[in-house]
Amino acid sequence: MRKLARWHIWLGWLAAVPLLIWLGSGLFMAARPIEEVRGEALRRAAVPMPLSGLVLPREPVVATKLALVDQRGRPTWIVTDADGATGRYSARDGLPLGPVGAAEARELVAAAWNGTAALSALRRFPRDAPPGDLRQSRPSWQATFADGAHLYIDADSGAVLAVRTRWWRAYDLAWGLHIMDLQTREDSSNAFLWLFGTLALAMALLGAALLFRRRRTATGRRA
């Protein structure tokens, strides 16, 4: 029992830091509703569109996904192929539409934004160097607002890729700490998590065994 107690103490020291990280990050992530973290209220709802008179893309395309969206009052087809590449076509005449330029990006941002903060900056990012909070390898326009929120527009299709608030970025950091993956923040089965999780479980099991033994000893003495 003395050896078990000694192991329990040493494991407690080793597991103390990850346990504090898990508890602290978990409490932080529970501090705000997930809808507020995602900024769902900052994104304007989709506008209903009449389907009469619409035509399919005229060019021969092989698509895995075809979506009809409203872009500045213009019905638009967003076509996604098997490689994940996207393009857009007018749903009125079926002709292809080019990439989104800066002027159109501003208009698309204004049409999608439902917040009260003013637009403070607009910047384009290439596919191979996306901003850290986008979490997608897509060419994009990043709209930065006065309250720190980001709204991303796909530079190829004009679709809204994501809304990122300050709370989302803090939540994302807390999630990375919680799963012990600060690089991609997606690997919830990494070696560090398994190691410290195993240590914490062993510490808890040893503590339970010690507690049960002490209760039995105390009961025997009273008898």
Results as ranks from 00 to 15, higher is better:
Met1Cys: 06
Arg6Leu: 14
Trp7Pro: 00
Ile9Asn: 02
Trp13Asn: 01
Leu14Gly: 02
Val17Gln: 04
Leu20Ile: 11
Ile21Pro: 09
Ser25Gln: 08
Gly26Glu: 12
Gly26Cys: 09
Ala31Cys: 04
Pro33Arg: 04
Leu42Glu: 04
Met49Ser: 06
Leu54Ser: 10
Leu56Met: 14
Leu56Trp: 12
Leu56Ile: 00
Val61Trp: 05
Leu68Val: 05
Arg72Tyr: 03
Arg74Pro: 03
Ile78Thr: 02
Ile78Trp: 04
Val79Gly: 10
Gly84Thr: 13
Ser90Lys: 11
Ser90Ala: 13
Leu97Tyr: 09
Pro99His: 12
Glu104Cys: 05
Arg106Leu: 06
Val109Gly: 03
Val109Ser: 03
Ala110Gly: 06
Ala111Tyr: 01
Asn114Ile: 01
Leu119Ile: 05
Ala121His: 12
Phe125Met: 08
Arg127Ser: 11
Arg127His: 10
Ala129Asn: 15
Pro130Arg: 12
Pro130Gln: 09
Asp133Met: 03
Trp141Thr: 04
Gln142Thr: 09
Gln142Met: 14
Ala143Ser: 13
Phe145His: 09
His150Asp: 11
Tyr152Arg: 01
Gly158Ile: 02
Ala162Pro: 01
Thr165Lys: 03
Arg169His: 02
Ala170Trp: 14
Asp172Cys: 06
Asp181Leu: 09
Asp187Cys: 04
Ser188Thr: 13
Leu193Ala: 13
Leu195Ile: 10
Phe196Ser: 13
Ala200Trp: 06
Ala209Val: 07
Phe212Lys: 10
Arg214Lys: 12
Arg215Asp: 07
Ala218Ile: 05
Thr219Glu: 15
Ala223Thr: 07
